[in-house]
Write a protein that binds this DNA or RNA. Sequence first.
DNA 1: CTTCTTATTGAAAAACATTTTCAATAATAT
DNA 2: ATATTATTGAAAATGTTTTTCAATAAGAAG
Lengths: 146, 146
Amino acid sequence: MNRIDQWVKVLQENGCRITAPRRAIIQVLAESHRALQPNEVYELSRASYSGIGLVTVYRTLERLENLGLIQRVHREDGCHLLMPAANGHEHYLVCTGCGRTILFEGDDLGALFARIESGTGYRVSDHWLQLFGTCPECREMGQTHN
Amino acid sequence: MNRIDQWVKVLQENGCRITAPRRAIIQVLAESHRALQPNEVYELSRASYSGIGLVTVYRTLERLENLGLIQRVHREDGCHLLMPAANGHEHYLVCTGCGRTILFEGDDLGALFARIESGTGYRVSDHWLQLFGTCPECREMGQTHN
DNA sequence: CTTCTTATTGAAAAACATTTTCAATAATAT
DNA sequence: ATATTATTGAAAATGTTTTTCAATAAGAAG
């Protein structure tokens, strides 16, 4: 079962109707290898459903985010970029050249958290880790574009 | 030398003039123990300089950020909160109750990065780690406010 | 297949955050 | 004291996201 069908299933299970505009948006996001801005999602969705409205994009993004299907990717300049969600202990690794973003599994930060908790008195409940770097292609070609 | 004087010095060294509105903004931010939104900085600054304009707040925030004196703190809902900058390998630990944010030193992620680099082909150049939790006060009082 | 209910849609307007423009002001060097 | 020029606040402009609302269409029920 591919990601698009999975997302459609989750939406249906939560009482959402599957419409043409939603299909267009889902297709764009589910198959994207880099984080997209709402505006980009809008532009790309118009390829498969030209009549789509930007408002619908925003509403669908909110829905998908609430259902845990997509997630925000944070960068220095902002955090309005969206990607298929990470699962469990996965985190994003963003290429600063082309924007291609992959997930990497796991991190053993237990020891660090224990040290911080005893040192600060805080109780750590959540963490947020993101890496930046260059993907193999960008390193070879030395190019920088989005 | 306290933080306010340090910041003033850095500004002066970079050809910036020290004005009353800037002093007000600097004081608010340099002494804050939680991350503030531009609008909050504006409100708080008016206490010591009532005539200040929101535009000046935005301009000064940009200046301070460019000079590395303040930094953005990211949260689920956005990333427009500002705090005195972390140094070196410090990272933020944000209390989800009251917002109080402290810095913790160091993290030995070298091994993790090496594993990721060999596994993915990416070259990791930068990382971004932020922790969320509850400070001792909030845990005791079980209260949640900002 | 038809009908009904109601979630969803797009356009327009509103709300909100941030930036730009510009003439007046004031910090700093001389 | 004077000159230079960075800085200021008000107003306007910009850009993004949300709300409102009547029309539409998805999916359930018959």
